[in-house]
Nucleic acid binder design. Structure first.
Length: 306
DNA sequence: CGCTTTTGACCGGCGC
DNA sequence: GCGCCGGTCAAAAGCG
């Protein structure tokens, strides 16, 4: 993997670089997965012809190269019009489940989902619990001290935050409750999709059944402990699986200019019904709001619009 | 100069 | 009890 994932291949720079890709939502047949039929999601998500195999780079991106871009489009009349201009039809699924029982399965969960998914993109919500990995690892070899500890053993969920923060007595009794997780499957050439938040990559690992590595990112905001994993589906190399974990304790930097709230409930979303009017089982805007994750919400809403 | 990425090593949990 | 795997840390390097 010398040049593997991190190989700087993907525009190593963060910031608001564009991402390209075929944004497509797929339906996830996973258990308890909600489905919603849509059809041209990709059209307005990533109006990229299809240079997937070609060599489309993040530079030559479409209007909405990422979930965030798309979201931001909401704030932009033009963008919105774009969306509404397209028949919101596509297949999307929301999977709400708890991962409190799996440890590795979790990771695979996303992978499996990807495998089962159709060449579009899907979103799966996973209601877990508290955090788990971040704090339960504190004591390393010589990592006696934790410099800033951005968020790991900080607070978050409260409760078992003082378990292994510093002490060796790392009790394993904890089933290490996980934070809510949300997985997105997106057709994209780039793995790190811009979502409005600033992330810092802190690790990368090779995925067992996939030739593609999995990258680990953490929100750079000091008190925010949100993490996200990005990996590519081994079955659909063009599909990127992004799993968010935790909830932001702040607003999206990108939304500062437009208030994140708008992302969730655009005042006059021409044609978009209020969250509570969305067909039950289709999406959980509240959950997203809770997690402060604007990314999927709008999309889903749009999708749910006839 | 500061921030982010890269990369190898290590930890902890789980399965066999 | 051992091995495997996922996940995280930390030092170093690169870039704007």
């Amino acid at each position: 993997m010398s040049s593997g994932g991190g190989g700087g291949g993907d525009q190593g720079r963060h910031g608001l670089y564009h991402q390209h890709g075929h944004g497509q939502l797929t339906r996830y047949d996973g258990a308890g997965g909600y489905e919603l039929s849509n059809d041209d999601m990709e059209s307005f998500f990533f109006s990229q012809p299809e240079g997937v195999g070609g060599g489309v780079r993040a530079d030559e991106i479409a209007p909405y190269s990422s979930i965030t871009s798309y979201l931001q489009g909401f704030l932009d009349p033009t963008g919105l019009a774009r969306h509404l201009d397209v028949p919101a039809k596509h297949e999307l699924s929301v999977d709400v489940r708890s991962h409190d029982q799996d440890s590795q399965g979790t990771g695979s969960a996303a992978g499996e989902s990807a495998a089962l998914l159709t060449p579009n993109s899907s979103v799966s919500f996973s209601s877990g619990g508290g955090d788990g990995e971040g704090k339960s690892r504190r004591s390393k070899k010589g990592r006696a001290q934790e410099p800033d500890d951005q968020e790991d053993g900080k607070d978050h969920e409260d409760g078992e935050s003082s378990k292994t923060a510093n002490n060796k007595p790392k009790k394993k009794a904890e089933k290490r409750p996980r934070l809510p997780r949300v997985s997105f499957l997106t057709k994209s050439e780039v793995d790190h999709l811009e979502d409005g938040y600033r992330w810092r990559k802190y690790g990368q690992k090779a995925v067992k059944n996939s030739p593609y590595p999995r990258s680990y990112y953490r929100c750079t905001t000091p008190k925010c402990g949100v993490k996200k994993r990005v990996e590519r589906s081994y079955q659909d190399p063009s599909t990127v699986i992004t799993t968010y974990e935790g909830q932001h304790t702040h607003h999206s930097p990108a939304s500062l200019r437009g208030s994140a709230a708008h992302l969730f409930m655009p005042p006059g979303l021409h044609g978009l019904p209020p969250p509570h009017l969305i067909p039950p089982g289709v999406f959980h805007p509240e959950l997203m709001s809770m997690m402060r994750m604007p990314y999927p919400s709008p999309n889903m809403h749009l999708l749910s619009v006839p």
